[in-house]
Amino acid sequence: MAGKKDAKPNLTPAERVALARHAGRPGTAEFIDALFDDFFEMKGDRLCGEDGSVLGGVAMFHGAPVTVIGHRKGRNLDEHLRYHFGMPSPEGYRKAGRLMAQAEKFQRPVITFIDTPGAYPGLEAEAHGQGDAIARSLARMSRLRVPVISVITGEGGSGGALALAMGNSVLMLENAVYSVLSPEGFAAVLWKDASRSAEASEVMKLTAADLLEMGVIDEIIEEPAGGAHEHPKAVFKKLDSAISRHLQLYEDMNGSALSAHRCKKFAAMGKRYLTNLDIEQDL
């Protein structure tokens, strides 16, 4: 139970899901505006298309250049539709990969913002290799020789979220959620009933506190009572200092150490939930 001084009610996972999806919640575009200077957006995957549901470019962070990449849901209905509510197509992930390669070339850190229900499930997305695009993004991120800081800001849905979230540090806003599938999808797959999403939210362990406990994220960024949209400036400030602090952790690491750090971190995830049966024991 919350103490007397605690103005924040104890939210249920389902309530956090609602907050993470709140229309007024700051998105990647707002975080870029607030935290960085001189952002220059870069478009196109240099193969066949441009997907605006991934927003990326170069900017200054405390006087040093960084590459910034994140999911973009859009600020109004028009943009929501154009950006598929932040669900990228393969072109989006390939653009992200191109920008990451550039970050490596010019030796600047990569900051990613995660806010997507998942990768876009469409005809064209499949024909253009959604699986290939995500797999290659993961492979590339594992080998990047510059620091990568990932921030789960809203919805972290499935492979479409993870594809940009392989950071040396993974930070998460207090009311953001991060899961193997949306609670609706999860309920539909396991119980053939998407309406049981609140129940799914409970069992999935998708809140920041759960994920910190499981070792999936490194730090929780506190939000004001009522959610990030109630007082965005407070969130921007906290996130700004957290990103600076985490970047400093990697200042003295060389390229291969950074890549190794990232691989080791993700290789360890879930290890503590493994056991080795006596193999001789017959089935």
């Binding site: 995500i134 797999a135 993961l138 492979a139 991120m141 594992s142 080998r143 499935s158 492979g159 993870l162 392989m166 991060y178 899961s179 193997v180 999935m204 362990k205 998708l206 994920l211 499981m214 999936v216 990232r262 691989c263 993700f266 290789a267 995830m269 879930g270 939930y273």
Partner: peptide
């Protein structure tokens, strides 16, 4: 196995 299953994508790809 929830989010930890998702993390195996990163692990195997790496």
């Amino acid at each position: 196995e929830g989010i930890l299953s998702l993390m195996q994508m990163a692990k195997t790809a790496a």
